[in-house]
Nucleic acid binder design. Sequence first.
DNA 1: CCAGAAAAGTTGTAGCTACAACCTTTTGCT
DNA 2: AGCAAAAGGTTGTAGCTACAACTTTTCTGG
Lengths: 160, 160
Amino acid sequence: MSTRWLDDTEMTAWLRLAAVLELLPGVLDSQLRRDAELTHYEYFVMAMLSEAPERTLRMTALAQRTNATLPRLSHVVKRLEDRGIVERFPCPEDARATNARLTAAGWKKIRATAPGHVATVRRHVIDVLTREQIAQLADITGAILKSVDPEGHLSELYQR
Amino acid sequence: MSTRWLDDTEMTAWLRLAAVLELLPGVLDSQLRRDAELTHYEYFVMAMLSEAPERTLRMTALAQRTNATLPRLSHVVKRLEDRGIVERFPCPEDARATNARLTAAGWKKIRATAPGHVATVRRHVIDVLTREQIAQLADITGAILKSVDPEGHLSELYQR
DNA sequence: CCAGAAAAGTTGTAGCTACAACCTTTTGCT
DNA sequence: AGCAAAAGGTTGTAGCTACAACTTTTCTGG
């Protein structure tokens, strides 16, 4: 099992991707933290809830859509609940399950926060790329996700 | 300043990139943690040192090459020093500065660890893409880095 | 129909990162 | 020269995430 090292092109691509992995989350977090006292993950949780029917999702479904483990989500939702942004209630159909719902205050907050966040995403990602590159990025990240998430939790994100 | 929302293509690309941002670091960390008791960032610090002359770099230079803040690097290097992987010593030319050098044990460790790490990068990133996509990825991440790192610390990463 | 396995969450804790505060040395101005 | 500002690092702490342990409910095979 001799190692296949990376050639120059591969190394450049990987080093840059690793740099993006390191730097981009911090950029997103700072803007949201400064303007709304939210982390990017918290924002993402709110965004997923805001698009769900009744603005409600079961914890497991929410964890999958936000690419997180259940323990992590549980902690985050508890903090959001303390701040009045979401509320939790037992699921009627399954006594094991918990539903999380975006409150009216949470809905108001994400509506107020979304423009600034989208502007940040545009400034650092979307608007620095051509239309063609945006399509390429979707394909590339789609391929990576398939290998990183073999159970296919994100299947809806794979297809165009 | 009315918000320009993301259209379908843009949203797909962004959601997938956000998922990669969330999932890929964990994949890299688990493999390194399991096989070498290292985080990906620690590995990266060692890798940058191993390629430097004398396997030595000033803390500031090392922080820039690893895309991290100085406080973060300082904490990490201290832990690596406690483990005998790097050593620190004052810089002769500038009494403010500190040099970090990879020890013999550190050199041995990264040589033993590199194959497994490269295999992971290949499996989840490089080998799931075509040659063309790898070049596209380098361009795309290069463009993002320019906007994320305006001071140009990573300038050597921008050019092919 | 019931014992064991799986599923759904929660909680506790260790460890890492961000941020701020601080110290020391060097640089720049006048 | 001399003093303020900038550069280079370190340290302390709060907050978030990963991992493991645990509880409760549901599913499944015999």
